[in-house]
Design a binder for these strands. Structure first.
Lengths: 336, 336
DNA sequence: TTGAAAGCGATACCAC
DNA sequence: GTGGTATCGCTTTCAA
């Protein structure tokens, strides 16, 4: 493989000049620059990244930490986040390296060291439920980190998410406005920050409207949502609305209704959360709270760079959410 | 940040010994090894990757090239591939770097150079429709590359996919066995290798059974499949079965039927391809051809390493497919 | 404007 | 067993 020295030799200049020419420094004669560029092109030369990094100590890549467990429709949002991060990074001239939560652990070293040794600017982190001590060390360090859907706060950190609590409240407000009184919340696990927020919003609104809170604790799984919704309806046929902490759970609730021969939205209204594409594919289409995951990824990467560059950044950045009204939710027309 | 020299100094040994101890070489006294390890641990030392790579010239990462365009349920399979590649790589002690198709182009350099300068073992490539000249140079080079769902052949290459043609034929066989005669194929774009294969299989089976081929050319989009299926049914109400080249298109066909008040599977049977999770979420659940994308990723990574290691590998590796029978397909009970 | 030379942080060969 | 040292490919002063 050709090295900078080969190019230098071929161009009859020093490697230093080649480096300058290639990196667009101005202190190099226009003639020689052109010559160097031409030769480099000819030899199809491409600088070795390791050497560049070692010599320049420039941090040029954004670390992205994600869970890599299973995969199904509910993980569609991951692609949104990933492409958002990539898109921003590429436009800004940075690269991104995706690590699974256990990549780092496999190296059984601190995230801090991991960043250093990989020349990372910092990391965008998503899907870390349990706060391990290494994360604590990371957030207390000088390494920039952005957490998606989390509650962590540290020296150089920022949390990105929609305002889950507000969104949760909004949904209940809307349902109440449609005449619903028996509103069930199919909740996610409380240790998940987003689920926690949505539940809090639900409770706040329920309290506000003087209704009774009806919470079905569930994990973010289709089948569990399906089963528990079914049981609930069987025991509480007077329920008229289900608000689910995720779209996949909403599909579960929807199918539970359908399989029990309840009509949606005539008998029961359903509202989900996330606006995954599946909400538009099922019939009836599911009303939901839209999160822009692509934007979430983009913004996270942007904030990471801001933190790195010393730009003033908030500890928490809320992205807009939007209530998307589709077929699955309607005015309550049942007697009570 | 601590370097190997710091550790050496602290341990009262040479950096060479530290390197040996850390890398598990045996030519180092047990006492000193322990001491070195202890010190390294204490200082939370982690070798700098760039330096390691530069010095050792060891290729330790697998490149993964993917499209990064839009994202919706139809891209669920990407996560399968990604996690498969990661899983294998991690277990084998390798890393993976994901590049979008245009990352490489942005660097406007050849894939060959890109691999070299990034110390890549080679690349697993997916989603490259148009064969650009750079890819041709890659496959003619000595760099290992594995293509998922493609038709490329080169010096150190391998293509991984299910046998799309066979799968396509199988589906038609099954439908014919269920008494269907008017079987429509909702095809993907022909320049996509997988779509091409499925169509070929469909045609072969249709010919075999002495039926008439009915092909709706479509791209892999829900809406397009929905619209065209609807039009088709309106014009050919006698159609009794739709075989779609992807699950998302199958959902489109399903909804077209449903919206036209056709019953599925009583009036029309539908079979998709991929076995994305959405096939289980919609009602009726969709029968489909299962591809194991996780396995596809794993196998691709494995083959890449095999090629690298000089292990004998086939130019084409077929993964098993499986016909999953769900609610959307049944015996034809309509008169003709 | 150009180039010589000193690193960057590891590895690995070769004496000792 | 251990350590000195050349080396990997590039960047970056600093002189010339």
């Amino acid at each position: 493989m050709k090295t900078i020295n080969d190019i230098a030799k071929a161009a009859g200049v020093s490697p230093a000049s080649v480096s300058k020419a290639l990196n667009g420094y101005k202190n190099v004669n226009e003639k020689t620059r052109e010559k160097i560029l031409r030769i480099a092109e000819m030899y199809d030369y491409f600088p070795n990244r390791s050497a560049v990094q070692l010599a320049s100590k420039a941090e040029d890549t954004i670390g992205l930490i994600m869970p890599m467990v299973s995969y199904n429709a509910s993980y569609e949002y991951l692609l949104g986040i990933i492409s958002g991060v990539y898109n921003f990074a590429e436009a800004a001239g940075f690269r991104v390296a995706i690590f699974t939560s256990n990549t780092v652990e496999n190296y059984n070293k601190s995230y801090v060291q991991f960043c250093h040794s990989n020349n990372l600017i910092g990391m965008v982190i998503h899907g870390l439920d349990n706060i391990d001590p290494q994360i604590m060390r990371l957030v207390e360090s000088e390494i920039p980190s952005v957490f998606i859907d989390s509650d962590i706060e540290g020296k150089k950190t920022c949390v990105v998410s929609v305002n889950n609590e507000l969104a949760g409240e909004n949904v209940v407000d809307v349902l109440v406005g449609l005449g619903h009184r028996h509103i069930v919340f199919v909740a996610g696990p409380d240790y998940v920050s987003a689920a926690h927020g949505r539940l809090a919003g639900y409770r706040r609104a329920i309290l506000k409207h003087n209704l009774e809170a009806r919470v079905i604790p569930t994990r973010f799984f289709y089948q569990e949502a399906y089963d528990k919704s079914k049981d609930y309806i069987l025991e509480n046929p007077e329920a008229t609305a289900f608000f689910c902490a995720s779209d996949i759970m909403a599909v579960g609730a929807l199918n539970a209704c359908l399989d029990l021969k309840y009509r949606v939205p005539d008998d029961i209204s359903i509202i989900g959360f996330d606006d995954l594409s599946i909400t538009q594919y099922v019939r009836p289409q599911i009303s939901t709270v839209r999160q822009d995951f692509y934007q979430m990824g983009r913004k996270s990467a942007e904030l990471l760079l801001d933190i790195r560059n010393g730009v003033e950044t908030p500890k928490r950045h809320y992205l807009d959410h939007e209530l998307i009204f589709r077929q699955s939710a309607a005015r309550n027309i049942r007697e009570r």
